[in-house]
Simulated scan of single mutants.
Amino acid sequence: MATENKNLSALLNPLSKDNPVIVQILGICSCLAVTAKLEPACVMGISVIAVLAFANVIISLIRNTIPTNIRIIVQLVVVAGLVVIVNQLLIAYQYDVSKQLSVFVSLIVTNCILMGRLEAFAMGNKPWPSFLDGIGNGAGYAIILIIVAFFRELLGSGTLWGVQVIPQSWYELGYANNGLMILPPMALIVTGCIIWVHRSVNKDLQE
């Protein structure tokens, strides 16, 4: 029962109470960079989930054979290998999205969420809990990206997933898209608003 509760916590806690973006304040850079549109934000989120989950499993499997003084190098090599695979899959099957994401897929290698979970969790736990931890933290990261991208694309471009959502009749009545929303600083402001709402609801997170 204790093991099941631990596994459940590893999967679910990062979705809210221990979210890597809005609680631990990690992965903010990519949140600024890829959330002007919903599609690349979703693809980035899925990519991080896949890389983090499998990197956690691999590091967990070999954790007892990794010399302590080179463990960070080994972790980087594992993550880099998985990122190359993800990048090649995107180029093969989602070329337009991969162009929008540009170098940011490659920069998953340096995402502090990944290195933090590999060091803090996968190095000390078995493969299954590590897999769940990777899924949970990746999903927590993806949720925030998707929420930020939803508001930025909707209010900044009047579209969602490239499809016009705000009716043309609104524009004829004088509605104008908020061009500020698609600028990088607005991603930080929207993220800040999410953090504010989240901490208002979760009083135990307030200092």
Rank of each mutant, 00 (worst) to 15 (best):
V79D: 02
G124D: 05
G45F: 06
L154M: 12
C31L: 14
I189M: 14
A55V: 04
Q206W: 03
G134D: 00
N7D: 03
N177A: 12
Q206P: 02
S60I: 10
P184W: 12
G116I: 07
R71N: 02
L107S: 04
I49W: 01
T110C: 06
I113G: 00
R117H: 10
L32A: 11
R71L: 00
N202L: 14
I143P: 12
V77N: 02
D204W: 07
G156L: 14
R71M: 01
L82H: 03
T35F: 08
D96K: 15
K99P: 07
V34L: 11
R63E: 09
C31D: 08
N202H: 12
I58P: 01
V78E: 06
I62Q: 09
T65R: 06
L114Q: 08
N125V: 09
N111S: 01
C31Q: 10
I59E: 06
S16F: 12
L145H: 13
N125I: 04
S169P: 01
I144C: 15
I70G: 05
L82I: 09
L12S: 01
Y95G: 08
K6G: 02
A92E: 11
L154V: 11
I62P: 14
V74F: 01
I189W: 12
V201F: 13
V43P: 02
V105D: 09
G27F: 00
G116K: 04
F104I: 06
P184S: 12
G174T: 05
L11N: 11
P185L: 10
Y93T: 10
G138Y: 03
L15R: 02
Q100V: 08
V57R: 06
E39A: 12
V197R: 05
P40A: 06
Y93I: 07
Y141N: 06
V34T: 15
L180M: 15
P127W: 05
V84S: 08
L188W: 09
P20Y: 00
K17T: 15
D18V: 00
N56G: 12
I22M: 13
P129L: 14
V201Y: 11
Q24H: 14
L173D: 05
G158N: 13
K17Q: 11
C42G: 10
P67C: 05
I25C: 07
I28E: 03
V148R: 04
I194C: 14
R199M: 09
R117N: 12
I66C: 13
Y175W: 13
G124W: 02
S60H: 11
S200A: 13
